[in-house]
Simulated assay, not measured.
Amino acid sequence: MSRPARAVAAAALLVTLAACGAGGDGDGDGTAAEPSAARPSEAASQSAPAKSSEAASAQAELIGTWESEGGDLRLALRADDTFTEDLNGKQAAYQGTYKATDDGFTPSADDGARAAGTLVDEDPHPHVELSGYTLHPR
């Protein structure tokens, strides 16, 4: 696994673990299963700004332009969480926002269309799978 892929995986794991710990021990009373599980310094490091920077690092590998082999689909993912998709020669066929997920991203177009994209981090050729297309970095 490449160094960026390990960083994305580690960031995703930290975000997931932080989210799991936020609700307590799962019995609905909001108490932690083990009071000594998180020291104050650890709790401070799991604050919202830290999650935002982790999400940003997880997103970093997605940012850029991805294109299918035949050029039928071109996807531009930007750092401001917006995307533009050119499809079958139509520029900006879809545009909207996207959210980085543990294994890829979820684009939501302005017209309400949604999809699930998967980042496949295979050395030396990472790619994105989206709507039946395989997209490579451009």
Rank of each mutant, 00 (worst) to 15 (best):
G70C: 09
A58Y: 01
R78M: 04
A79I: 15
N88H: 11
N88C: 05
D80N: 12
G71I: 10
W66N: 06
T65V: 13
T84V: 15
A79L: 15
D72K: 08
L62Q: 03
E61N: 06
G71T: 12
A76L: 12
I63S: 05
W66T: 00
E69T: 10
E67M: 00
L77S: 08
N88K: 15
E85S: 04
L73S: 13
D86H: 09
D81E: 13
Q59I: 01
R74N: 02
L73K: 11
A76G: 07
A58I: 00
I63Q: 00
A76C: 13
L87E: 13
D81V: 08
L75A: 02
Q59S: 06
D86E: 08
Q59G: 05
R78N: 02
D81I: 10
D86W: 10
N88I: 07
G70K: 07
L75V: 03
A58L: 06
D86Y: 08
T84Y: 15
L87S: 12
L87Q: 13
G71D: 11
S68E: 15
E67Y: 01
D72P: 07
D72M: 14
L73N: 14
E67S: 05
A79Q: 10
G71Y: 07
D86A: 05
N88T: 12
G70F: 08
L75M: 05
E61F: 01
E67V: 00
G70H: 12
G71E: 11
D72W: 02
T82K: 14
T82I: 10
A76H: 11
R74K: 10
W66K: 05
W66L: 03
G71M: 13
L62H: 01
D86S: 08
A79P: 13
E61G: 04
D80C: 12
I63T: 02
G71N: 11
E69P: 07
L73Q: 12
I63C: 01
L87K: 15
L87P: 13
S68F: 14
R78E: 01
D72G: 09
G64V: 01
A60M: 09
R78C: 04
E69R: 06
F83W: 12
A60Q: 10
D80Y: 14
L62Y: 02
Q59A: 09
T84N: 13
E69N: 14
F83S: 02
Q59N: 15
A76Y: 13
L62V: 02
L75W: 03
A79R: 14
Q59M: 12
N88Y: 09
D86V: 13
D86P: 08
I63V: 03
S68Y: 09
G71K: 14
A76I: 15
N88S: 08
E69Y: 07
E61K: 05
W66C: 02
G70V: 05
R74P: 03
L87V: 15
G71S: 11
E67Q: 04
R78V: 01
L62P: 00
Q59W: 04
T65E: 07
W66I: 02
A60N: 15
G70M: 09
E67F: 00
F83N: 06
R74M: 08
E67D: 04
L77A: 06
A76N: 10
E61W: 02
A76Q: 08
T84I: 09
L87N: 11
G71F: 08
Q59E: 12
E61S: 07
L75Q: 01
L73E: 11
T65D: 06
